[in-house]
Structures are given as structure tokens and as C-alpha cells.
Nucleic acid binder design. Structure first.
Lengths: 293, 293
DNA sequence: TGCATTACCTGACTTTAGTCAGGCAACGAT
DNA sequence: ATCGTTGCCTGACTAAAGTCAGGTAATGCA
């Protein structure tokens, strides 16, 4: 780590919370408590389940309930039971709530504009670029990679997305039944592992490991959601899978990939994988790689 | 302004306040109110006058007083009257307060470290650079430039700094008595103007305008503090002075400068000033510039 | 059918943050 | 000496934020 890295981060957060904090309090919550304003934002046009609000804003159940009642009294939103499970309730903005949301958005835009206004065009471009960088990398840093049961809803969602993308990208399309298996049993301890990447409780990537034969593992299901690409997440998932492989006592990991997935090939080469001759007959594989751990 | 500028700023502040806000509350103020933790920071090793604390943290006098009493009760600081004016009181950390400050700093560092930890070395370097950019430009944007009475304490402090720097940089040194005048009367309405740049109530630059003869003005005292250079502040002060000149009915502004002040010359040329022959006999002037407004 | 669980709500708190009016001592100028 | 000002403090508030212990209806499961 560079010497000035820590001071830079600290001085940055300090100056930023000061400058932006002032905004958040003064602009956004001018005529209502800040928590209420945030809640209106979070509910948004399409509405939002109460449980979802609770987790996203990290609020106490009782406190959130009270906030919802307050906004209801003000005629800004309605909380209605869901059709299929009447315990779960959904908050939706009323027409008046929509107007309020517009107003909040207007103030937010105005604040952003006033923040940039004193800067020249070139400076504005520079700060916007730098902000995008910081945000991206902050998101990358906030993304966690953990073991997950491959049968869980999030895991299955990721695999589904992965298959869908392969079907789009492969010239011949993709049918998972044709491909080499990597089912739940195979990708769980003690024979394998399934890793899920999450950003703020949202699944954004995955990777799986299964044992081919004693000492030799295979990496499957490497996928990163479009929204999270370019953040080095692929590299982190791959490294984490290799760590899992070592812990399972594997000495070599292999993987196969399709010619259309150029980024993936580049990643494998960068991470020390070398191309080997075909070790299976996966109909979608064009290249085979291997790495000794 | 670019199309995505506003959304980028907004999404950035959103994600940043979320990620950093969590830290500020959870890490820093874990076993005491956030306001107290901030206060300990602000008092720092060398101590700080109460009035200074009030303005820096923008706190109500009564509220601050109560916070100080609370920290005093906890044995973390002492508030003692100043020698020369016993109304003004100074807050100083006790030994225990110093220990607490160390702990706060430790937590801050730890947070910064944990924020960067998941990133690769190259990514860390990228985010640190981007943060520096954002902070610098945010500071630039937060710097205000306003008319100031040239006799005010801040104005005189800036002029003093300016003279001191000229004395350092000119080969022959600098003595303000030898130079062409620009006293308070000359740089005030209706014959002139004095502009002061402030960042968070701290004077960081200045510039003055006086009338030489009907329709012709002269720009003097252009200075930017070292801490604020490279932020385009010189350009903004110069533009603001030109605006003042137009409002005073001037059609031409002139200025002279010393050969050692290369950045200044570059700025003047960039802003449309062209070199002219000497229009005065200032002993420190090597170049003379003029701009038609 | 009964029982545990889930999802949310209510009431009764505490803590933190912030405001306002007035008060007192120290100081500066006359 | 006195009078206005400055710098800080105290008391008496209010609002916002957050916590905790139940409570209730809906649902799922044995």
C-alpha cells in the first residue's frame, strides 16, 4: 500500500462528508425529517416491499413502521398487503408522494448543479470522471465473495443469468443439458465449492469448483453481472476459488471456455493459467486451461 | 455541462454517504455521541479556542458548551481562559483525551485500510488518485470569491502573505514601499474593488482592482495560497476582477508582473491578456499586460 | 387442528441533536 | 465609574432518531 493511501482516504471522507452532509441535511430534508425524505426516495415510483425497505435502509422494524405511518398520514404513500402473502406489505407512493419525489429529485439535481457550477468545463469533466472512478472502485471494494449453497435462490438466479448470457454470446446458442454438469452436489463441500459475489445484498457474480478426480479440480460457472464488470471482480472470484481448491487439497485446477468469451481468456492467462490440450469433450469448449496451485 | 454529469454526482454522493456514513456512525462514535468524537478530533493535540471550534463545527454556542462540559466530566479535556483576554477560552485535551484521540485515529486508519483491502495494488492506486482529484476539485468548487473590505483582517493577512512571497521569489527581494501603491481607498468602491477567496472561512487568495484613469483599471495583489494552487482559483479571481471592472465602467485593464512569476504570466496570456510596452516604472515589473474588456 | 414462524405494528421508552432566551464575567472605550 | 460589547455558560425546551418488549394477523407445516 502506498504511504499516502490511508491519509488520502481519510482526508477525502472527511471533506466529503462535510460538504455533502451539509447538503443532505439542508437541501433534502428541509421541511421534513431526513429519514422520511430518504424513505420516499427508497420507495420510488414502483413502490417497494416493507421488508426490502428495512434491509436497504437498515432500519429498526418499529422505527420504519412509524415512519411509514407518518408518511401515510401526510397522504404521501399507501401500504397495502401483497396478493399472495398478506403478511408482506408493499409501500407505494400516492400521486402526492410522486410529486414530493419529483421535488426531492429536483433539489438533488439542483445541488449537484450548484456543486459543479463554480468549476470550468474541463474541471467538471475531471471531477465527474474521478467520481465515477471512486464510486466504481468503492463498489468493487464493497463487494463480498462468500461460500453459498448452490441451491439457494441467489445462486440459481446467477446460474440462470449465466446460461442466458452464454446463449446470447455463443454463435450456436447454449443449452445447459448439452454441457458438462456442475450440479449442486458437485459444487458443495466436500467435493467442491460455490462462491457468490454480493454488492449490498444483491447477487452480482458467481463461480463454482468441482472435483474431477483426486487432486484435480474444475472451475465452472464463472459469471459477473454486466453492472459489476470492469471492477476486477472476475479476478477476485477466481482467486477465491483457487483458495477453496487448495483447502480441498486439490493441486491442479482446470477449466474450459468458449472462443467468444475473450475477457475470460485474458483473465485466465493473466492469472497464470496456461493453455493445454482438450481434457474433455464439452461441445461448447474451444480452449482448455490449467493451473498448478 | 456533460449529460451524465448530474446523475454521476448524485449517484456518487449517494453511494459514498451510504458507505462512509456507516463508518462515521459505527466506527468513530461507537461508545460516545458522534458530536463528541468530532469535537475531540477538532480540538486535537495543540488545543483550540472555543470560538474557533464553534465556527469550524458550526455549532450553537450553548450546544458546544454542553459538549465541552460533558468531555470535561469524562476527564478528556480542560477549558482554560486565555492569558491576555480571559473571556476567550481554550480547550485542551488531557492525557486521557490524547489517548482517546489516538484511539479515534486508529479506528479511522483501520477503516481506511479495510476500505482499500479488497482491492488490488493497481486498483488502490487508482482510487487514491481519483479521491485526491475529487477532493481537490470539491475544494475548488467550495471556494467562494467575494468583495471584501481591503482593510479587514483577512484582507490584510492575504496582502501580507503576498508581499512575503514576493520577497522570497524576487531575486532582488521585495519592499512594498518601493512598489506602486494599491491602498485600501484605491481598491474600494467607487474607484476599485478587493476580492477575497475563502475556503471554509479561511482566506486562501485575493485580488484587487484600482482605477488608473477614466476607463482604465489596474489589477494588483493577485495571490493564491500555496494550499489552494492548481485548482483554477487564479483564473476565477481574475475573471471576477474583470467583472468588477466592467461594473465600474472600465474598458481596459492593465497589470504588471515580475519575470519570476511564470505561472501568473501563463494565466494572463491564457485569459486573453496581451503584452504591451511599459505603462509605468514599477521597479519590480518586467512585463506589462493589457486586456480590452 | 394446533403450533411455530413470519411480517409487521404499537406503546413506552432513551439518547442525541439542536434551539432559544437570558445571564454573567471580562474587556474596551469614554 | 459606567456602559456597551464580546465570549461563554445555564436552563428549559423540542424534534429527531433509535431501541425494546410485547402483540396480532397471516401463513406454513406436522
Amino acid at each position: 500500500m502506498q504511504d499516502e493511501a490511508i491519509p488520502t482516504v481519510r482526508s477525502f471522507s472527511r471533506s466529503f462528508t462535510q460538504r455533502i452532509g451539509v447538503f443532505t441535511d439542508r437541501f433534502l430534508g428541509r421541511d421534513r425529517p431526513l429519514a422520511e425524505a430518504r424513505l420516499i426516495f427508497e420507495v420510488g415510483r414502483e413502490g417497494c416491499d416493507v421488508r426490502e425497505l428495512r434491509s436497504r435502509l437498515d432500519l429498526d422494524s418499529g422505527y420504519l413502521s412509524r415512519l411509514l405511518r407518518s408518511l401515510e398520514r401526510q397522504g404521501l404513500l399507501e401500504v397495502v398487503p401483497q396478493e399472495n402473502d398478506r403478511r408482506i406489505r408493499r409501500a407505494c407512493l400516492t400521486a402526492a408522494g410522486g410529486v414530493e419525489l419529483d421535488e426531492l429529485n429536483r433539489r438533488g439535481d439542483e445541488f449537484a448543479r450548484s456543486l459543479l457550477a463554480p468549476l470550468s468545463a474541463a474541471e467538471q469533466e475531471r471531477i465527474v470522471r474521478a467520481m465515477r472512478d471512486v464510486e466504481q472502485l468503492l463498489n468493487a471494494a464493497a463487494t463480498t465473495i462468500d461460500l453459498e449453497n448452490p441451491a439457494s435462490a441467489d445462486a440459481r438466479w446467477c446460474i440462470e443469468q449465466y446460461f442466458r448470457e452464454l446463449d446470447e454470446r455463443f454463435e450456436q446458442g447454449f443449452d445447459s443439458a448439452q454441457s458438462i454438469s456442475a450440479d449442486s452436489q458437485e459444487t458443495m463441500p466436500p467435493h467442491g465449492a460455490f462462491l457468490l459475489a454480493r454488492l449490498d445484498d444483491r447477487a452480482v457474480g458467481c463461480g463454482a469448483l468441482k472435483t474431477l478426480q483426486p487432486g484435480i479440480g474444475s472451475i465452472k460457472r464463472m459469471w459477473v453481472s454486466r453492472s459489476a464488470r470492469g471492477l476486477g471482480l472476475g479476478r477476485r472470484i477466481l482467486s477465491a476459488l483457487e483458495l477453496q481448491a487448495r483447502e480441498l487439497g486439490l493441486e491442479v485446477v482446470r477449466l474450459e471456455t468458449n472462443r467468444s468469451l475473450e475477457e475470460a481468456q485474458a483473465l485466465y492467462r493473466r492469472q497464470g493459467y496456461r493453455e493445454v490440450s482438450a481434457f474433455n469433450d464439452d461441445p461448447y469448449a474451444d480452449y482448455w486451461f490449467e493451473k498448478r496451485l
